[in-house]
């Protein structure tokens, strides 16, 4: 619903005053509640569905495939209902999410590598059924849950099959054999190493001299700029980028001192979200 200039001005005044009053009575550093389910799709290695009370709803499915090993082992696609395939939003979201996942050596250099020659190609496919505020936050939560629930088949030890082979000779990459897997799914191994959690993304909006986390669509309309922060390995890390949230009448920049404040907002609420997502399993 489009807001009038008066309504926008009212919203902006209430958000920039002390104390900050948000339309849904949250604190500046409080996230909206989300609901999630995991392992919902029978045809995937891991899947999750995340819902937010504003009607945002997304489903993520993870599939893996054995391929010749190369550097680019993760594919991310985003499909948003109602938007065309060549629309900028799903494509830019997919790029950002791929960038975030590619910079996780915990999975790209570890769980996805089978041997010198073969690796798993991981496809993370996101379907956004509906959204009102920027879908990046629930997408990242859904990918978090889906990756956490992803299991890969257990690789069988190949040594017993070729006892006659000369073990002293080291194998070159070309000779690496085709991997064999255990067909018992209860023996499958989780993709994420023990104690490691996938990255989460947070959006923070700057409105005059205040910053608010997880802005609603109307809050983004009166904000000067919005940025997203990545939370990885228990700290804020790259990529941190400005986010195009459409043309707003107050368009401006993110002041450096607000950036520090935004940092601390993310640092305050990220561990709690991580914990609650983990405990829901």
């Amino acid at each position: 619903m489009k807001l009038s200039n008066t309504e926008l001005e009212f919203l902006r005044t209430s958000l920039t005053g002390t104390p900050v009053i948000r339309p849904d009575s949250r604190h500046a550093g409080q996230l909206r509640p989300i609901e999630s389910e995991i392992d919902i799709l029978p045809m995937t290695y891991g899947s999750a569905r995340v819902r937010a009370p504003d009607g945002s709803d997304c489903i993520v499915g993870v599939k893996a495939k054995v391929v010749n090993r190369h550097d680019d082992l993760i594919d991310v696609s985003v499909d948003i209902a109602g938007l065309k395939d060549n629309d900028a939003l799903p494509n830019s979201l997919a790029l950002v999410l791929k960038q975030v996942l590619d910079s996780c050596p915990e999975i790209t250099n570890n769980a996805l590598i089978i041997n010198d020659k073969y690796g798993f190609n991981l496809s993370v496919d996101c379907v956004v059924l509906s959204y009102s505020s920027h879908p990046l936050v629930i997408l990242s939560a859904a990918i978090f849950q889906a990756l956490k629930s992803t299991h890969l088949p257990k690789q069988l030890d190949s040594l017993e099959m070729d006892e006659n082979m000369d073990l002293t000779k080291t194998k070159t990459a070309d000779e690496a054999e085709i991997p064999q897997f255990d067909d018992d799914w209860s023996q499958s191994v989780p993709l994420c190493p023990e104690g490691w959690t996938p990255p989460l993304l947070f959006i923070v909006s700057a409105i005059n001299n205040t910053v608010v986390i997880d802005p609603t669509i109307n809050e983004q309309l009166v904000a000067e700029a919005s940025m997203f922060f990545t939370w990885k390995n228990s700290k804020v890390s790259a990529p941190i980028e400005t986010l195009n949230t459409g043309s707003t009448p107050y368009l401006g920049a993110f002041a450096p001192e607000l950036l520090l404040e935004a940092y601390s907002l993310v640092e305050n609420c990220a561990p709690a979200l991580e914990q609650s997502l983990l405990s829901s399993e």
Binding site: L41, M43, T44, S47, I59, G61, V62, K63, K65, S77, D79, A81, G82, K84, D85, S123, D125, V127
Partner: peptide, 19 residues
């Protein structure tokens, strides 16, 4: 009516375009 087929819906992953 718009039909979307998710890439992960079949046994092997296939990306479908809406057109």
């Amino acid at each position: 009516v718009n039909v979307h087929v998710a890439p992960f819906s079949s046994i092997t992953r296939t990306k479908h375009t809406s057109n």
